[in-house]
Design a protein around this nucleic acid. Sequence first.
DNA 1: GTTAAAATGATACTAGGTCTCAATAAGTAA
DNA 2: TTACTTATTGAGACCTAGTATCATTTTAAC
Lengths: 116, 116
Amino acid sequence: MRNTKQKQIINSVIEQLMHFTSDDLISKVNEIDSTIGRATIFRYLSELIEQKKLQKVYLDKKIVYDSCVHEHNHFVCEKCGKIIDLVQTQTISNPLGLLINRSSVTYYGLCDDCRK
Amino acid sequence: MRNTKQKQIINSVIEQLMHFTSDDLISKVNEIDSTIGRATIFRYLSELIEQKKLQKVYLDKKIVYDSCVHEHNHFVCEKCGKIIDLVQTQTISNPLGLLINRSSVTYYGLCDDCRK
DNA sequence: GTTAAAATGATACTAGGTCTCAATAAGTAA
DNA sequence: TTACTTATTGAGACCTAGTATCATTTTAAC
């Protein structure tokens, strides 16, 4: 994996952001260097995810990239759209003043048939 | 809301399916009547979701529609792609022989600022 | 420097939709 | 039963969030 000017710029932008959409990233990168193409940015995002340096989070209304890669839950404010990372101790017992209306839980693994 | 031939056909297909992607639905509907357009199907899907007769579920690799609308969790087999609805009692204590590798949890609600 | 492989940017294409709009169909009222 | 009004439809353009292709750079190892 080669160290390029493009990757350095993309890294410098990501370091400033906790959660971001691909569009957020593309526009901030292009403010610095407008010749960097979308394909390069998406390609590098995929690499970072592969390397577990970034996590892709699928929310109901949008997809965000998250620099926090250890397992944790997310809280999404349905009014302002803010995303808050919830680490273990904060999960349900709400020290952040969050009003939780609903939750979405998905488990990934192997089903009975595929374990055989 | 008018009762149309199109809605009847779409309903009859949905009744046969537990979880389906929009593509699944479109092709099965078009097997019955190939003149029914994509827009009609997506429009009606949105209506059904609005009416809480259907739930849209965002998984990492695909989006599925789920006829089970009460709050529940999902299990996705990472090998065969099967989706299993988990009702309360099955959640973690695994009577279905599932091997859970990871989970994704998102809470939706109002943050501290938006509650004020 | 040379050179070979990796990376880039332009561009076309994809999935899963939404939007627009003229044409059609549903259902009520006469 | 016909007339009329308004909802619904289908075609097609457009959108978001990407992926694939490929000729043209660039990197970094010699």
